[in-house]
């Protein structure tokens, strides 16, 4: 027997926390954009993003890839903390108790609402120790300088740190498909570093995401 009044003790029922039209607030007369907890958000001008890429390239050349990747790791690590804090406070239960799909939904909606594109999780290779992430419409990749290799350095670092924190293991991340190279979506493979060496070599050789997956998981043929 379910007593309905027991289900909402504080009269609030959790729903879509990151829903776009409730998540982003603003005290625009003070020049502030905020999320629904009152934490500051910034609209990042695309010209600034381009300028960061150009400035880094001018000052550090080749090393800029590594710098961006490391920035991404810091971003991912802090983003994870904030993401979990927000969800835990809102749902009033630990993030670890969410079903994978619920977690994915929250991450997708969060990504979308921040304007970072559409992210999706592909757990088909979970048994083999790999997690695939796909991002469509990435601004960070759109404005990155075009190279003959995937250029989602920020996201590579961010996803690696985010999912390392989430899984409690030190994971590595390799981007295997990139919108800058004409791919429909950006693909990222997460796994432990030793098992991803082959993926890194595959990227150097210009192999496609599917070809790389076949090398990593031969049984997937």
């Amino acid at each position: 027997m379910v007593i309905v009044s027991d289900l909402f003790t504080d009269a609030s029922i959790s729903a879509n926390y990151f829903a776009t039209d409730v998540y982003v607030h603003g005290t625009l007369e003070l020049g502030l954009l905020e999320n629904r907890r009152g934490e500051r958000l910034l609209a990042l001008p695309d010209t600034l993003l381009r300028a960061i890429y150009t400035g880094l390239d001018n000052e550090t050349g080749q090393a800029s890839m590594l710098v961006l990747y490391n920035c991404g790791r810091w971003w991912g690590k802090n983003f994870y903390t904030r993401f979990c804090e927000e969800l835990t406070d809102y749902y009033n239960r630990p993030v670890s108790s969410l079903a994978l799909l619920e977690f994915e939904q929250a991450l997708q909606q969060c990504w979308l609402t921040h304007g970072w594109g559409q992210i999706s999780l592909d757990a088909d290779y979970r048994e083999d120790g790999f997690l695939i992430l796909r991002i469509r419409g990435s601004a960070f990749i759109d404005y990155a300088p075009k190279l003959e290799r995937p250029v989602g350095f920020l996201e590579t670092g961010a996803l690696q740190a985010f999912f390392s924190e989430l899984s409690g293991e030190t994971l590595h991340c390799v981007q295997t498909a990139c919108e800058s190279l004409g791919a429909e979506e950006n693909c990222f493979i997460l796994g432990i570093q030793e098992r991803l060496t082959m993926a890194e070599m595959g990227v150097e050789q210009g192999l496609s995401h599917d070809e790389i997956m076949r090398q990593l998981v031969p049984s997937s043929l």
């Binding site: 729903a15 879509n16 829903a19």
Partner: peptide, 9 residues
Amino acid sequence: RRLEGWLPT
């Protein structure tokens, strides 16, 4: 608008 990205999941 608020529920479509969430309810189906």
